[in-house]
Simulated scan of single mutants.
Amino acid sequence: MVAGVGDGRPVTERSFAELVAEATAAPVTGWGFSWLDGRATEERPTWGYAGLLAARMARARAALDVDTGGAEVLAEVPTPPPLLVATEAWPPNVALARRTLRRLGAGVVQVGAAAVLPFRDGSFDLVTSRHPVETWWDEIARVLRPGGTYLSQQIGPGTMRELSEAILGPLPPATGRHPALAVAAAEAAGLTVVRLEEATLRATFHDVGAVVWFLRKVVWTVPDFDVDRYRPQLAALHERIRAEGPFVAHARRFLVEAHRPAR
């Protein structure tokens, strides 16, 4: 049975209005997904980004984490480098990341929309990012020291397409966020890609509240998402889950590791 929520009743016993109201009121600050425990699941890539991150951080002297969110993943690094800095654009996440990283002695710098990292050339021997909003390859190459490494897990093309189309209707083929485009952009910035892996991962939603919360948090799935605007589609999805069982979509991820050539 799916876990109970709110007043303790299982989600299967709660109405559409109750589930949507609860998910709309729930906070979405940071980049943790514990609110979905018992209500949605997503497979993880076999490469294990958190483990790779920890290993690279243990060997680094100065590291930068870009688009850190609430720093939930970065905070789990067991052996941080002597200098560790993160960037984040969304103000609520900046405050959360600063609290989260306080025990590591790491700094968090708020950045704007401009494609500029506010650091000197060659400041870091490691730059990382998990699910960056946009990868500024020229800036990453600039702030890396010669011989430095960029490690990133990124969103692949057409991720969660089934969910997007359940709300928006049929969509044209996905063109952005393709691994081949990432490789080309990295090489154009002067980096050498040494590792590239791709994964398609099953994601399962057990109730429409989980869908609503996910769409509020992962905003690129339905860029103009608003509960009132898409209430008929959400109601149809609610009835579909009740009649057919959990809604299944597929997340797409790719891992890219690139080096700045040594002098």
Rank of each mutant, 00 (worst) to 15 (best):
82 P>V: 10
40 A>S: 13
62 A>G: 15
223 P>T: 10
227 V>I: 04
115 A>R: 07
85 V>P: 06
44 R>N: 01
120 R>A: 15
157 P>C: 07
83 L>V: 15
53 L>G: 12
106 A>P: 14
189 A>D: 08
195 R>Y: 04
153 Q>H: 00
93 N>L: 01
251 A>T: 09
39 R>H: 15
54 A>W: 10
154 Q>T: 05
174 A>H: 09
200 T>A: 15
48 G>V: 10
140 I>L: 02
238 H>W: 15
20 V>H: 00
250 H>F: 08
117 L>F: 07
133 V>P: 02
183 V>H: 01
10 P>Q: 07
77 V>I: 01
165 E>H: 05
108 V>S: 00
227 V>A: 10
146 P>S: 11
216 R>E: 12
34 S>K: 13
138 D>Y: 08
230 Y>H: 09
183 V>E: 03
129 S>I: 11
202 R>S: 14
109 V>Y: 06
75 A>E: 14
129 S>T: 13
257 E>T: 08
131 H>A: 12
123 S>D: 11
210 A>V: 13
31 W>V: 11
159 T>I: 09
69 G>T: 14
17 A>H: 09
170 P>N: 04
19 L>G: 10
206 H>N: 05
161 R>E: 03
229 R>A: 11
190 G>P: 04
152 S>P: 11
221 T>E: 06
41 T>N: 12
9 R>V: 05
24 T>L: 12
219 V>H: 04
41 T>A: 06
139 E>H: 04
228 D>G: 11
27 P>R: 01
157 P>N: 12
230 Y>L: 03
88 E>R: 08
118 P>H: 04
67 D>F: 12
66 V>P: 05
198 E>W: 09
224 D>Q: 04
29 T>Q: 06
78 P>F: 14
20 V>N: 04
19 L>T: 03
236 A>K: 03
261 P>I: 05
183 V>D: 03
141 A>R: 09
19 L>V: 09
122 G>P: 11
119 F>Y: 03
93 N>D: 15
99 R>K: 13
183 V>W: 04
216 R>W: 02
39 R>G: 15
186 A>R: 00
209 G>N: 07
98 R>A: 14
50 A>M: 02
184 A>K: 06
63 A>N: 13
128 T>H: 01
79 T>D: 09
41 T>Y: 11
144 L>G: 00
214 F>L: 15
169 G>S: 10
40 A>Y: 04
81 P>F: 02
240 R>K: 11
230 Y>T: 14
168 L>S: 00
163 L>Y: 04
171 L>E: 05
232 P>C: 09
93 N>C: 08
103 R>H: 15
118 P>C: 02
158 G>F: 09
244 E>A: 15
252 R>H: 12
237 L>R: 06
188 A>F: 01
155 I>P: 00
230 Y>S: 12
252 R>D: 01
235 A>Q: 15
258 A>Q: 10
56 R>V: 08
197 E>K: 06
159 T>H: 08
78 P>I: 01
68 T>F: 02
156 G>Q: 14
232 P>E: 13
153 Q>L: 13
238 H>G: 06
